[in-house]
Design a protein around this nucleic acid. Structure first.
Length: 769
DNA sequence: CTCTCCCT
């Protein structure tokens, strides 16, 4: 019964989505062309509706699947949930992300996956995506590293399997560049004819609405049968390259724009650059409350004027803006003791922060319905957010956006090998995306805290991630796709020569590539690891140590599990929460005394996990709070460790002497619990393995108590949040996980451990010539 | 004394 209601509700929703009027046209394009670029703003319905259209039109017959990729896990799982309520048979909709899958072979017809998950599936299990009829790559405009690699993989797959249809969904107008990438010179020849034709159909699309059901189905059905008949008959790539009797040409592609459901957004600029954009953001927000405040308090409960979303660059700025705004509001509402009149004018608001390192319960405030207090007092919301609100999450009920014009952006410096994180001006594309957040529920306004001239001078697009990150992972993935020469792999955006040679050099140093940039035996092994190369190398070192005869028996029993723990902790950020007040620091010192290893962060995290391993369960909420442990991170690290250990056991479990030992079995629990091991010996063994993976990130103590990287002699400091900083003894050499820009102007490193120079000389001889 | 945002 209640299902019925939900179903009817969504059926109605489905029909009014903008994409519905273009259903026939889109299906026809997918029929005729190998590649379709679908341009449409978020909310136009492409991610939820297109897979259903394809299912309804037979694209999943013959045990085939429609797969839709997403850059984020939450999007993949929530889209699957949503769409399963829209179809007659919910069991045909599924998802697959790391650690979580609802896929049922033979039943699932529409599947939402993360692009990272599909990339791994593609590289390792099903290189031709043989059960997939249509692959939809969503949010392609974000140009994440995984999306970009997936595009490259798919371009390669299409040469062997031209029948595979590709739909690329992008929110911006760089559609041409996607099409150019896929169909290249061919496209140039035919662009005018077909491109125009499709765009014209789009504009007259409304007239075809009545034909949507029934009329076109018959011929479609016929084509479909012939299509899959051919595939299963083993049609070769060349047959299909030529197109067929229907005039289809799967080597070509086309573009369709879907009308958005976006409301108009007025954009306002400042005349003069602002000197302090945090202060200006707060002032602008308060002025909006003043100006249209009357709308909220005049008894119309259904219209409160809409909320205000402010984009700032850092969490720190967000916190200070919240404080500034709250102070201003409380002084303006209590002054003269006549607060009720002020409030009636709407000059009262809740100020909410939103950035990723906030605890989940604070973040979720933004998504809660307005409290009775807020409704009663006509209180609106001012949300101060970082870039998280630009694409990752959608803040509801926003009518005003204030855009400071800056964001914190990562980039990789190939000379120092350091990851940097720097506040930069955003791109025009990013500014448009921010403004668009104001028009989702009603006509909105965007206040840009920079001049129109400054806007015109911004870069058109944000540089894609491949041009801003470390490339060892990219190179290894390309190798895993079976490409010998990395440079021959066709990427949409080309990485810099410097970053590429840094990546190749690092992989050579790690023993994954030989002098001619071919995978070594070790490299072939590392390609299969679901971890970055340095972690993979570290895990391999632990397996080696476990097996070696000169390893003390007790260490041999512990080392693989210990290094698995280190690997898992490296995949999560902020396992420990940072104290803020003096009192908290005292409790922190007490709590840490229990698990601390003065050698640094790696072994300390292993000691924390000893508590978990000994009791056999994750620490309680209370215990996590007392120990300054971020419980969500602990749970996540625990899951990752479990997955990694299953991976290692599958791959190496049967080998030599290691099969008898159970890495996380009762025997280990007993050893760890009764501490019948030499802690220094254990600490040293763990750090030797860490060094085997991370010697490219080694630094030596220099003048003035600072460290200098062995590779290139760049200054780097132990992060103040590292246990090595607070509790460690000074050590001549350290190895670190990664770097980031510290608050003190320099480059900070974390996690850090002290290591022995001898290990470095053995493992990284080329840094010592 | 802090780290934009994600992913296998």
């Amino acid at each position: 019964m209640s299902n019925d209601v939900v179903y009817r509700h969504y059926t109605h929703e489905r029909r009014i989505l903008p994409i519905a009027s273009q259903r026939t046209q889109i299906l026809r394009a997918i029929e005729l062309y190998g590649v379709l670029v679908l341009v449409g703003e978020t909310g136009c319905g492409k991610s939820t509706q297109l897979p259903q259209y394809l299912y309804e039109n037979g694209w999943t017959d013959g045990d085939m699947e429609v797969i839709c990729t997403q850059p984020r896990r939450i999007a993949a799982t929530s889209l699957a949930m949503r769409v399963s309520t829209e179809v007659d048979d919910p069991s045909i909709v599924g998802y697959s992300v790391r650690f979580d899958s609802s896929y049922v072979p033979g039943v699932t017809r529409i599947r939402y996956v993360t692009d990272g998950w599909l990339l791994r599936e593609t590289t390792l299990l099903d290189p031709l995506l043989s059960r997939c009829s249509v692959l939809i790559i969503d949010e392609a405009h974000e140009r994440s590293l995984n999306t970009e690699l997936l595009l490259g993989a798919v371009k390669k797959i299409r040469r062997a399997r031209p029948q595979l249809r590709i739909v690329i969904c992008s929110a911006t107008l760089d559609a041409e560049s996607f099409l150019e990438y896929f169909v290249g010179g061919r496209r140039r020849r035919r662009k005018c004819k077909n491109g125009r034709e499709e765009m014209t159909i789009k504009r007259t699309g409304g007239g075809e609405k009545n034909n949507d059901d029934g009329v076109n189905d018959e011929p479609r059905q016929r084509k479909r049968k012939s299509r899959w008949g051919k595939i299963h008959d083993g049609t070769t790539a060349n047959d299909a390259e030529e197109g067929d009797e229907d005039g289809r040409d799967l080597t070509d592609g086309t573009i369709i724009s879907v009308d958005g459901r976006q409301h108009p957004v007025d954009v306002m600029y400042v005349n003069e650059p602002v000197s302090d954009y945090v202060k200006s953001t707060v002032e602008t927000a308060l002025r909006i409350l003043e100006e249209d405040g009357g709308r909220g308090g005049d008894g119309r409960d259904d219209d409160d004027g809409g909320d205000i979303l402010c984009f700032l660059a850092t969490g720190e700025e967000v916190d200070s803006a919240v404080k500034m705004a709250e102070d201003a509001i409380s002084s303006s509402t209590t002054i003269k003791g006549d607060s009720s009149r002020r409030r009636k004018r709407g000059n009262d608001a809740s100020c909410l922060p939103l950035y990723s390192s906030l605890p989940p319960n604070v973040q979720s405030q933004v998504f809660l319905p307005r409290s009775t207090d807020e409704v009663r007092r006509g209180k609106r919301r001012i949300i101060f957010a970082t870039n998280i609100a630009e694409a990752s999450v959608t803040v509801p009920n926003v009518a005003h956006v204030i855009d400071c014009g800056y964001a914190k952006m990562p980039f990789f410096d190939p000379y120092s090998g350091f990851d940097r994180l720097i506040v930069c001006p955003i791109s025009r594309a990013s500014a448009r995306q921010r403004a668009g957040r104001a028009g989702r529920v009603r006509p909105g306004r965007c206040y840009r805290l920079y001049s129109e001239d400054a806007y015109d001078r911004l870069e058109a697009e944000t540089a894609p991630e491949v041009q801003r990150c470390e490339l060892t992972t990219l190179i290894m993935t390309i190798k895993a796709l079976g490409v010998k020469n990395v440079l021959s792999f066709d990427l949409m955006s080309v990485p810099t020569v410097e970053a590429l040679s840094h990546g190749l050099e690092s992989l050579y140093a790690l023993g994954a590539l030989d002098e001619s940039a071919e995978l070594t035996d070790l490299g072939m092994e590392m390609v299969y690891f679901p971890t970055d190369v340095r972690t993979s190398r570290m895990l391999l070192a632990s397996l080696d140590m476990e097996r070696r005869e000169d390893t003390p028996p007790m260490i041999s029993k512990l080392i693989v599990a210990d290094v698995l723990t280190v690997s898992a902790v490296l995949q999560v950020k902020d396992l420990f929460r940072q104290p803020r007040t003096e009192g908290q620091w005292r409790s922190y010192d007490n709590a840490m005394a229990d698990v601390l290893d003065r050698s640094g962060d790696h072994v300390t995290s292993v000691h924390l996990f000893d508590l978990v391993d000994h009791s056999g369960k994750i620490l309680s909420e209370d215990e996590c709070r007392d120990r300054f442990v971020n419980r969500a991170a602990l749970v996540r690290a625990f899951d990752v460790r479990d997955q990694l250990s299953r991976f290692l056991r599958r791959r190496f479990g049967g080998n030599g002497g290691s099969s008898s030992s159970s890495w996380f079995g009762p025997k280990r629990r007993e050893i760890v619990g009764s501490r019948v091991y030499d802690p220094d010996e254990r600490s040293e063994a763990i750090r030797k393995c860490v060094t085997a993976g991370y010697f490219t990130n080694a630094a030596r103590l220099g003048d003035g108590g600072r460290y200098y990287s062995l590779r290139g002699n760049y200054a780097v400091s132990v992060s103040p949040s590292s246990v090595l900083h607070r509790y460690g003894e000074s050590s001549e050499y350290i190895v670190f996980g990664r770097t980031y820009d510290g608050s003190r102007g320099g480059v900070d490193a974390k996690p850090c451990s002290s290591v022995n120079g001898l290990w470095l000389r053995q493992l990284a001889p080329h840094y010592w010539s």
